[in-house]
């Protein structure tokens, strides 16, 4: 349900489950993604290891967004493309990893 999950809830509860259930092909090769939510903190998600952490790790990709904008992407209310276009979302990292990450986030949308 849109607008029912907060970003902290997503990272602490929903995401670990989604990662656990995701097919290997969907999460492998993305590596560690740093989700930087500004003053709301940073989460490090290792897609290959399917783990979520608040401990700093060298990232392969970086996602910057407000919690609301990130959840809009996660819940499918805003596409990654629109997020980039409107500068509500910033993605950094190697091209193929970012492409896989975008696909994976789209997959989560259907699961959440």
């Amino acid at each position: 349900m849109p607008y029912t999950t907060t970003a902290p809830q997503f990272f602490s509860a929903a995401l670990p489950k989604l990662l656990g259930a995701a097919p290997a092909a969907s999460v492998s090769g993305i590596g560690v993604v740093e989700f930087d939510l500004g003053k709301n903190g940073i989460y490090w998600v290792d897609f290959d290891a399917r783990s979520v952490s608040r401990t700093a790790r060298p990232p392969n990709c970086i996602v910057r967004a407000t919690p609301a904008d990130l959840m809009a992407v996660i819940e499918g209310r805003m596409s990654v493309g629109d997020g980039l276009l409107t500068k509500r979302l910033a993605l950094s990292g190697e091209a193929s990893r970012l492409a896989r990450l975008a696909e994976c986030l789209a997959l989560f949308k259907t699961e959440i």
Partner: peptide, 18 residues
């Protein structure tokens, strides 16, 4: 070999672009 996208050069360094 590829493209690496970064918001800043500091971020580029952090991502260790090949």
């Amino acid at each position: 070999s590829t493209a690496v996208f970064a918001d800043s050069t500091a971020e580029l360094r952090k991502l260790k672009a090949p």
